[in-house]
Structure formats: C-alpha cells, structure tokens
Design a protein around this nucleic acid. Structure first.
Lengths: 247, 247
DNA sequence: CACTAATGTGGACACTCGTCTACATTCCGT
DNA sequence: ACGGAATGTAGACGAGTGTCCACATTAGTG
C-alpha cells in the first residue's frame, strides 16, 4: 500500500536498512489473523517470519500485539471515516442548500438516496480491505479489552457521523438527536453483519445490499410511524437518551 | 446395541474414576475462553490443568477443540431454544385461541407483550450463562469455520422459531413469511449486541432492555408503514414475492 | 568525522505445547 | 465373576515460543 512510515508521533528520523518494516508487520499480522488465529494469540515469530523479518524486528516497532492492533485501527479506521466524510461533503456541495422541510415523499426519496450511497460506500470499503475488516470484526468481539474498546469507539464515531449527517440533511420532524443516534448505532452494528455476509457470499451481493438498504429504511420508517401514532409513550417506557454503550 | 451412545443425551455407559470429566473440560474451556484466548487457540494443557485433569484426559473426550465447541453449542444452544419454545407454548395455552384479526392497536399491544417477554427471556438466559454466551458470540466471529457455521446455524434456528411464533400469534396483514424471516434474522443479530451490552454494563440493564424492545417494535412498525405507503415498490428493488392483490 | 537513534540480524536460554506409549482404576453387560 | 470399554494418570520426546544480549548497517546532526 502506501508508505506511511510516520504513523506514531515524531517518527521520521534515522532508519536502518528497511523502511517498510512496520507496515510489513501490520500486513502480515492482519493476513494471518484473518485466516488463522485471533490477533492476540498470534505468534510473534509466526508474524515476523511471514513478514520476512527476524523475530526481534517486532520489538523495534511494537511492544505487543495490542499495540500493533491499535496502529492498524488508526490506519484503516481513519481511512474509512475520512472516506465517508469526504463523500458526504461532496454530496452536500453538489446539491447546494436543499432540504427545507419537504413533503413526506420527498424526504423518503432523499433519505433513500443517502442510504443507498452510504451503504454502497461501506460495502466498497469492505471489499477493498477484506482482511483488515475481518480482523476488525473479529477483534470487536475478541478477548483483548484494548482492541474491543478501540473498535467500539470507532463504531461509535461512525454512528455519530451518521447521525449528524442525517440530522443535517433530513430535518425529520420529531426525530430528536438522541433517537437519531440510537438508530444510527443500531444501523452501524447491523451493517457489521451485512458486511460479513457480503464478503462471504459474493454471489448474493446484490441481494445483501438491498437487504441492508431495506433494513435502514425500515428503521426510520418505523420510528416515524411510532411517533406518529403516539405509541412511543406506551408500556415500553421512554427514558431513552444515554442508554447506549457509551464508555 | 442399545443406545447409540455417541453424544446423544444418553451418555451413561462405562466410566473410570471420575464422571464429570467431559463436563469439567467444557466448563474449563468456556471459562478460560471467556477471559483469555479464543477457543481454537486455547492450550490443551491449559484447559486440562484448569479442569484438574491430566493433559491426556482431553483425548478421552474430544479429538480437538472444534469438537469440544460443538458439544458446548449443542448443550447450551439446545437449552436456550428449548427454553424459548417452552415459554412460548405456555403462553399460547394460557391464552386459548386469541388472535382473530384484531384492530391495529390490539395487534400492537399483543406484539409488544410478546416482544417484551421474549427479550426478557433471552436476557435472562444470557445472564445465567454468561461465559458460554460470551464465548458463543466470540466464536460466531472467530477463526474456526466449524464453530462459525454451527453458531450461524443456531442463530438461524432462533430466527425461524421467532418468525413462526410471530406468524402464528399475530397474523399481520401483508407480512409474508419471507419478510418476517428477514426481520427475525435481523432482530436476532441485533440482540447479540444488546446481550453483550447487557452483560458488560450491569448498571444500564433497564435501559438496554428498553432499547431492545424499542428496536424490535421499530422494525415491525417500519415494515408495516412501508407497505402501507406503498414505498416498498420504490428504487430499493423488491423482487420479493409478488404482492399480487396489493391492498 | 564522531555520535546517536532507528532498524535490522543471529544465537541462546528456559519454557510450554501437543502427542505418544504404557499403565491404573472403575463400571457395564453377559 | 469376568472381560471389555471408558476414563483416568505418569513420563518423555521434539518442536515451537517469547525474550534477552550482542552486533551490523544506515541516516541525520553536531
């Protein structure tokens, strides 16, 4: 990929023979972890061997595998988030200042367009970063608290981005910020499953994409319908805000 | 020629000193896997040591860790599924022959009741089988294809059960079996996240339970709303069944 | 040039691991 | 009661592991 050798703060001066060591180790670890063990239980020697380095070279870059994992999350998580934000901004520019409160149909159409684009972008990223994504999902449920926390945080950032986007573009009446965030979190989580299906069943990609879009539309339509019929004050109770997996 | 004593529930034939060996190994493995490695990367010696047995005792019961994992899935997955089915039947009896097609409000109320009970049951099970559940979720995304497949299948069974239940109790107009199953699958998947939150944040259990119930209601309300407004024939694509007589 | 920091190699140590062979104990069915 | 099957223990082997120490190469800085 790219030579990004300055990932850690202040790390650009003198170097020995090879420059790609760090990157090579990360790639080796992701590749091995995607097809074999979990990240935390990878062998140090195994990884360095795969990367074409001596065992000790590992220590030059990372203290342990959690540290390597965090570096990978920073690298790829940041890339995905930047990608989503970019595309979002591009769309917003290309449209001027649109969404005055519009009719229900107009909102639906606009929402569907945004949903469709976002889903496509995520699935595209997932396809291009297959191994990293698989490892990411694996570690999200894995045994290292450090990795779990880092990845949960990443997902929370995605959810916040998505909620802000929705808030800005569609000003849905009665959809307060807290509810929007709750829905966004649930969408992001569900997407982690859809993305896995997408990778594992290439022959059903079209269907999976449609399923994902349908899911998201269903969530919003459901919230609107429940608010419209006043059902949300029912037995379910409604002390919503701050209920999620916030740190 | 009597019991096919393979792994069927009739495993009681000849035995040596201890009887709980198999069970002890499973428990040890789950316990270790829930707090340390993934199942597949557990050490044979590690597990037997924790179980208070000699390393070789492992071979007496399992050929490898996949086999142990499958046994655990059979054990606990079966228990959960039976529990859900039981409670479902009990509810159905205790009610006689209820659901003639009722008004929308009546359907909503009944649906909410079922949702609430089912969510409570699942969360209760999760709390009572904490370690097993954590390992299950971990292996659902883990590196062993054998375990992944077994757990995906288990979740599919849950989804089918849930869809059938919904189908039987609430005869929602226009909610065909395929859509119901799709929604059920998504609910089951989302519940895996809710359950994790539930375990990891005991102080927010009430809120998480409400969130789960809200999520499920939102899904159904959303599907009904979309069908009612004819939106499901839109750009999303909908080669699902032919709605035919479209209401 | 001399110095330092970064990056790399190789060898060695003690340790754990999976697996094998051999033997001991307990229960079941005939 | 006896033989076989199930379940358990003990010890040993080679392979792989994490980590440490010593040394080599290169880039930038004074």
């Amino acid at each position: 990929m790219k030579d990004d050798s300055d990932k850690a703060p202040g790390k650009v001066s003198g170097m020995g023979r090879g420059v790609g060591g760090r990157q090579k180790l990360i790639e080796a670890a992701l590749h091995l972890a995607s097809s074999t063990h979990s990240l935390a239980s990878l062998g140090l020697r195994e990884v360095t061997r795969y990367a074409g380095l001596a065992p000790n070279a590992f220590y030059r870059h990372f203290k342990n595998f959690d540290e390597l994992g965090l570096a990978a999350v920073d690298l790829l998580g940041g890339e995905l988030r930047r990608g989503l934000r970019e595309r979002r901004l591009r769309r917003r520019e290309g449209r001027g200042a649109p969404a005055q409160i519009a009719g229900r149909d107009e909102v639906m159409r606009l929402g569907r367009e945004i949903v469709s684009q976002s889903v496509a972008l995520v699935l595209e990223f997932v396809r291009e970063h297959r191994v990293a994504y698989i490892v990411g999902i694996r570690e999200l449920h894995g045994s290292s608290p450090v990795m779990r926390q880092a990845l949960q945080r990443l997902m929370e950032e995605f959810a916040v981005d998505m909620a802000e986007d929705m808030q800005t573009v569609l000003r849905l009446p009665g959809l307060d910020a807290a509810t929007l965030l709750e829905i966004s979190r649930q969408v992001i989580r569900q997407m982690s499953f859809f993305s896995m299906d997408y990778l594992e069943h290439p022959e059903q990609r079209e269907a999976i994409r449609e399923q994902a879009e349908r899911f998201i539309m269903r969530m919003f339509a459901g919230e609107l319908a429940m608010q419209a019929s006043g059902q949300m004050t029912g037995a379910v109770g409604k002390r919503r805000r701050n209920a999620g997996a916030g740190d």
